[in-house]
Amino acid sequence: MEDKLIIGGHAFHSRFILGSGKFSLEMTNAVIENAGVEMATLALRRANVGGEENILDFMPEGITLLPNTSGARNADEAARIARLARELGCGDFVKLEVIRDTKYLLPDNFETIRATEILVKEGFIVMAYMYPDLNVARDLAAAGAAAIMPLGSPIGSNKGLLTKDFIKILVDEIDLPIIVDAGIGRPSQACEAMELGVEAVMANTAIATARDVPLMAKAFKLAIESGRAAYLAGLGRVLEHKAEASSPLTGFLEA
């Protein structure tokens, strides 16, 4: 069976979601091609319709746009930005981020739930950026989110999966795609996240700050594919097998 990522009823082959805005816009095409991505985020605040360096002008045909609500400090602001994105022709997908701390840029889970409730009612396909908390993820699912996007570590930090154990809980318990959104600093960390069973990885800074941006995009593509394959192959079985073979505590049992 073909392995597809399904978000809000839409199928994708690529499990890599590309962030934008931190590398030169004219590189967008090359990066998207190297990364093999089908979905790319863009900050709506960077849309300069009819003006110079309008991020929307640089997104290639066929790519699914994932406008984010960057700049929103509460649910109502996020909803307004999402509506504006739709009016600009960005479609129904929205990467919801609600942040009211300019220092750490950590998401406000409570307002994110509230914004999800509002936006789902208006027909948006909501992919919610959040701090990995099981109760919040359940509330987001109940509110109709299409995907849950927990952070791996603080955005832009390149520190990798500091929240690994909590993300694993979401993978185990939530019946929606879990997509690691922030903090992935290197391909090996993206691979590790995929091995864990997350459905996709999003990255931006790690690629944008590389010496060769398109090449790093490719490295991420390969790492994500590799991690996915490892997950599907069943990473845990080697250990299980070993445990069965030795059985030091139960080997005395007779049939």
Binding site: F23, L44, R46, A47, E53, I81, L84
Partner: peptide
């Protein structure tokens, strides 16, 4: 800026 590998951002703000 372009010659230095940097990008000029004209719009990075949305009033909500």
């Amino acid at each position: 800026l372009k010659a230095r590998g940097l990008q000029t951002v004209y719009s990075d703000y949305i009033r909500v």
